[in-house]
Write a protein that binds this DNA or RNA. Structure first.
Lengths: 111, 111
DNA sequence: TAGCCTTATCGTATATTTGCGATATAAGAT
DNA sequence: ATCTTATATCGCAAATATACGATAAGGCTA
């Protein structure tokens, strides 16, 4: 039991879920916020802004990167992260599509 | 170790993360899709549409309900679920706020 | 009442996530 | 060449999520 059944859903469903999962932790939301508030890549600083150890922050950054929400270039001792705007646009429109559907239908909500 | 540090972030960050977490599984995305495609509450059917056992689907429904994404009235042998449109609107605007920020800033993306 | 059908909950096994300290790595400074 | 500094990765412990079968609970029907 506890087999992973995720592959049995459509690719779009999996993509959306993965996007959501990448944002499913307040630390990662906080990181995205910091990146969003600047015009440039963030190198350090992020660790200082979060109540987490350096290794943990690095792990969260890796997850965001793997999910494609941010890009990062590792320049030796200092890394450089920024938002992957394209990915956000893509998933934002996916979400909006879902929400739009809801909006129309819900005129007749029954419970 | 592995303490739960989630409470150390702002309420908004936690709320957004919880919303994302509720959508962070393809089964739950699929459930929301089904609910979105109908004008009425869904009672059974959902189990038939997913490649999961009845108890597992019930569990996912519970999570969606706990997160406030759907409402449900348990009428004895047949339950009735539908989308909580209000919650979606709220979080959609939160997300859009974040995305909007990104959009403006990203003109000067550096990596 | 007894049996049936539908949905929820419990118990449990496994998988995944979270978090930290320790350690590695890699560029710049001395 | 060695030291410093910043970041990544490893290894592990604890917490949480996923999934199922078994069972309970709650209305219907006969």
């Amino acid at each position: 039991m506890a087999f992973n059944k995720k592959e049995e859903f459509t690719q779009k469903e999996q993509d959306l879920a993965n996007f959501a999962k990448a944002m499913a932790h307040p630390a990662r939301i906080a990181i995205l916020k910091v990146l969003a508030q600047r015009n440039e890549c963030i190198c350090g600083e992020i660790v200082d802004l979060l109540p987490l150890a350096q290794s943990t922050v690095s792990q969260h950054l890796k997850e965001l990167k793997t999910a494609g929400l941010i890009t990062g270039s590792i320049d030796g001792p200092r890394s450089c992260y920024c938002i992957n705007w394209k990915a956000f646009e893509k998933f934002n429109s996916e979400f909006n599509f879902l929400f739009a559907n809801l909006k129309v239908k819900n005129e007749k909500a029954c419970c």
